[in-house]
């Protein structure tokens, strides 16, 4: 068991898979020599060499196209898009090509590839380097979507993503890179499509993703002090979605809250709220409530960014008020 940062866990997960399978290769801007702008690929060039760990031009379409073409012809690439905001310049390759080709070719083409990216706000980077776009990916049939919140999950979900024969969008949260956690020794392989109960509770279910998970846990601490027992579920995987864990929790607590970093409209919680309304309606003791960033671009100033993103305080306050009413 070792204490590892979230960013070191990314490199560990990739290295674990590269040692196991020489078809696994890594490409992206600054991923080799520099070890990644977020230092998530440190040491990989030294261990695996320039044939398998490759710096690319600032050409996001070329990067993802290369990953796709390689995946369809026998490699298992991991490609990095530095900031998830940059998917806007290569979304064609993701949505029109990678997501649809297996279906359009009636299963002839297999695309075992991982696209990893730095996602999310909280770092004062402003509106073009802070977005949470995992809900964009969730909206496209053919993409698996995961967002780990702990170093252990980073390693295990990266391994699961690399071993998947489907394309996986792997959203690392930039605000969590320096966070630390215990990671067991040896190989770790998690499974896609599974949520985790981070804190059991009886009065309310709080769903969270990425950096919202530690905030939801902090909120649950606050709520415990006020006599409210909140269950916190780390959704982890948007596609496939572990609705069983979510609906089962709802059946026990009777209340459902989502904590979403995305702007309000069509955040991932909207889909879950819809499922809960259809399938968990008779378990609900009150309205489902979504706690999101307002429907605005993220401001840069720290005071403003803190104001608009869901915080432990805002989550605790919202849940407490809802349960009192």
């Amino acid at each position: 068991m070792a204490q590892l940062t979230y960013r070191d866990a990314v490199a560990r997960g990739i290295a674990q898979e590269m040692r196991r399978d020489e078809r696994v290769v890594l490409i992206g801007e600054d991923v080799a020599g520099a070890g990644g702008v977020f230092k998530t690929t440190v040491g990989l060039l030294a261990e695996f060499g320039p044939k398998r760990v490759i710096d690319t031009p600032i050409s996001e379409q070329a990067i993802l196209g290369a990953a796709m073409g390689a995946a369809m012809t026998g490699l298992r690439p991991v490609a990095e898009i530095m900031f998830s905001d940059f998917f806007a310049v290569c979304w064609d390759i993701v949505v029109n090509e990678i997501a649809k080709t297996r279906y359009m070719t009636d299963g002839q083409v297999v695309l075992p590839l991982v696209i990893k990216t730095g996602n999310g706000g909280g770092l004062r980077f402003g509106a073009q380097h802070s977005q949470s776009i995992e809900n964009w990916a969730m909206a496209v049939p053919g993409l698996k979507v995961v967002t780990p919140s702990t170093p252990e999950d980073v390693v295990g979900l990266m391994a699961a993503a690399v071993r998947s024969d489907d394309p996986v969008m792997f959203f690392e949260h930039k605000g969590l890179y320096s966070s630390k956690g215990e990671v067991p020794d040896g190989d770790i392989v998690d499974s896609l499509g599974t949520a985790k109960i981070r804190r059991p509770g009886t009065d309310a279910t709080i769903l969270a993703l990425g950096m919202m998970v530690p905030r939801a846990l902090a909120a649950a601490d606050q709520l415990a002090g006020r006599g409210i027992s909140a269950e916190v579920i780390d959704v982890r995987s948007l596609v496939p979605l572990d609705t069983a864990t979510i609906l089962s929790s709802l059946s026990r607590t009777g209340r459902l809250f989502t904590v979403e970093e995305n702007p309000r409209l069509l955040g991932w919680g909207a889909e879950i709220a819809s499922i809960a309304a259809e399938e968990g309606f008779w378990d609900l003791d009150g309205p489902i409530q979504r706690i999101t960033t307002p429907h605005i671009p993220l401001p840069s100033a720290d005071s403003l960014e803190d104001l608009v993103m869901p915080s432990a305080d805002s989550v605790a306050t919202t849940v407490e008020k809802a349960l009192q009413s």
Binding site: L64, G65, A70, E97
Partner: peptide
């Protein structure tokens, strides 16, 4: 344009 980038990937492989 997309498939020029994908052809690169097959060539790389």
């Amino acid at each position: 344009g997309a498939h020029l980038t994908i052809a690169n990937g097959a060539a790389w492989s």
